[in-house]
């Protein structure tokens, strides 16, 4: 049961650590790489607080071994804002529309929404609700989360048009 050299690209930077094969991706990120943005809510694959992006898809990092992500490209909530710290449209929209209360689900919600808007840049309300159906929030009742994601989609579309 020897340790493995695990390498991945995390938030655009090469990351590497020696870890046991049984190390879960969430523990690798939080404990070996000190990225404590992704949270552990349920530890059973239900709540989505641990959601990160892995090779272009949303995954629940409490149910993935770091060894499975060896060589992968991973994005966590820490990688969503611009390098200069300017908030992403989704982060701004969550603030503007009160898309969070305690904030525990928020890193997973935003990381998931970030991928959802790449899969579907102008989702309907139903599509947003289905898209975040793997992310639970105990506080907000979802209304403002859905509003925030929808507002961010509009904002991103306007910015894209302006750039053209």
């Amino acid at each position: 049961m020897s340790k493995m050299h695990i390498k991945m690209t995390v938030n655009g930077k090469a990351a590497e650590a020696l870890a046991e094969p049984r190390t879960l991706l969430i523990h690798f990120l939080r404990e070996d790489l000190n990225l404590t943005g992704p949270h552990i809510g349920c530890d059973t694959g239900h709540c989505g607080a641990c959601t990160v992006d892995m090779d272009g898809m949303s995954v629940k990092s409490c149910t993935v071994f770091a060894a499975q992500a060896n060589g992968a490209d991973v994005t966590t909530i820490e990688g969503i804002a611009a390098p200069d710290g300017a908030l992403h449209a989704l982060q701004e929209a969550f603030r503007e529309h009160h898309g969070l209360q305690c904030g525990f689900c928020t890193p997973g919600m935003i990381t998931r929404a970030h991928r959802l808007l790449q899969e579907n840049p102008s989702p309907s309300e139903d599509e947003i609700r289905m898209g975040i159906s793997g992310n639970l929030c105990r506080c907000t009742g979802y209304q403002n989360i859905v509003k925030a994601i929808s507002a961010a989609a509009d904002q991103l579309a306007t910015a894209k048009e302006a750039a053209q």
Binding site: T51, M130, G134
Partner: peptide, 9 residues
């Protein structure tokens, strides 16, 4: 089956 994240893997 489950949700988008689970279906991705």
């Amino acid at each position: 089956i489950a949700d988008p994240q689970v279906r991705n893997l």
